[in-house]
Simulated assay, not measured.
Amino acid sequence: MTIAQTTYRQGDPSTVPVVLVHAFPVDHRIWDECADRLIDCSAGDGDPAFGVYALEMPGAGECPVPTAEQTGPVAEDGAYPEAMTRMAESYAAALRKAGFDKAVWVGISMGGYLILELHRLHPEMFAGIMLCDTKAGGDAPATRANRVAIAEECERHDTVDPVMHFAEPHDGDSVWKRSDEAVALFSGWIRSQDPRGVAWRERMAAARPDETDQLAKITVPAGIVSGTLDPSSAPDRMRPIAEQMTGTDCAFTVIEDAGHFTCVEKPDEVARAILDLWRRAAAAD
C-alpha cells in the first residue's frame, strides 16, 4: 500500500522521531497546527531537533485507494479482515524507508487503532506510544454493520455525505468545534476526501482485530490524551486503557473543553503532552 509522508521537521537522524497518525474521515492535516506547536515548544525549550512526521492512511488525502490485491480478503458482510494488518505493515515499511528503526508513535481515533496493530506486529519499532481519543477494542456487531452501510452509501452515490456529521456542530461540543471556523475547516477537509477512500477505511476498521491484549504488552513510555467532551472516548472510557498498561508508566492528559479531535481543538495542550512523552522516550532509549 502507498503511505504518503508529510515532513514537518526533518530533524536530527540520530534522535528518535515523532510519527503522527490521523483520524477518520480526514487526513494528516488535522496534525498541522499541533505539529507546528510541538516544534516551536521543543525548539524554545532547547530540545534536540527530533524529526516530526505524519503518515497518511491509504485512501486518505492524496493517497491512492488500495487495490483488491493489496486489501486482501473480503468478509461476507463486505468488511476487510486483513486490511488493518496490511496497512500496519506498510507503515512499518514507510518508517524504515525514512531511515528510522523506531519512533514515538502518536495516533488519534482511527490512528490509535493503527498504532496498536503496529505494536502487535512490531513492538521493536516503538520508543514511545500515545493514544488520543481512541479505544483498544474491536467494533460491536451493530457498529461494524453501520460502518459497512456507510461504506456502501459512499460508494453507491460517490459521496462523502454519510460522514459529514463529523463537521457539523452538536450540543455538547467544545466552544471551538461549534464555531464557524471549525465547521468550515472540517467541511473542507472532509469534502476533499475520495468517497472510495472513506469507504475503504470504514470497511478496514469494521473488521480490525481487538487490540486490548496489546495494552499490557506495552513497555515503552506511554501517554493517553482524552477530551472531556468526547462522546466516544471521554476520560471515563479511556482510564481503563491506561489501567491496563501494566507494563509501563502511562501519563494521562485530560483536555478540558475538547471533544474527539483534541489535536485540532487544543493543539497547544496536545503538543505539550507529546513533547513530554518524547522526552521520556528519549531518556529511556
Rank of each mutant, 00 (worst) to 15 (best):
T7Q: 12
Y8W: 10
W176D: 03
P58H: 02
A68M: 10
H170Y: 05
I190Y: 00
G59E: 01
F261L: 15
H22C: 04
R239D: 12
L121I: 13
A283S: 10
T253E: 11
R208P: 03
D133K: 09
M110F: 09
V183G: 13
D133P: 10
D47V: 06
V26Y: 04
E62Q: 12
V21K: 02
A79R: 10
I3V: 15
I108N: 14
E117G: 05
F186W: 14
V104W: 05
G78D: 05
S42H: 10
P231W: 04
A205C: 14
E243F: 08
M57W: 10
A282D: 02
V270T: 08
E152S: 10
G44Q: 06
Y80N: 10
T262D: 13
P58E: 03
L277W: 03
M164N: 06
A206Y: 01
D36K: 14
P17S: 06
T159R: 00
T253V: 10
R196G: 01
W176N: 03
G247I: 04
E62S: 13
G172A: 03
R178P: 04
P73M: 11
E202D: 15
P209C: 08
I129K: 00
R86H: 11
T159A: 00
M84P: 06
P195W: 00
S90P: 07
A251I: 06
A271P: 09
G188E: 04
E124H: 08
F126E: 02
A251S: 05
R86A: 13
A103P: 07
M57P: 01
F24V: 11
A149K: 14
D40F: 11
T67M: 01
I150G: 09
A93Q: 12
D249T: 14
V104I: 07
I255K: 10
R272A: 15
A88D: 08
H22T: 07
L215K: 05
V106Q: 02
G72C: 08
T262S: 15
A167Q: 00
W189C: 02
G51W: 10
F186P: 06
E33S: 11
R196P: 03
S187A: 12
S187C: 04
I39H: 07
I150C: 08
T212Q: 11
S233A: 15
G138E: 13
Y80M: 06
A145W: 01
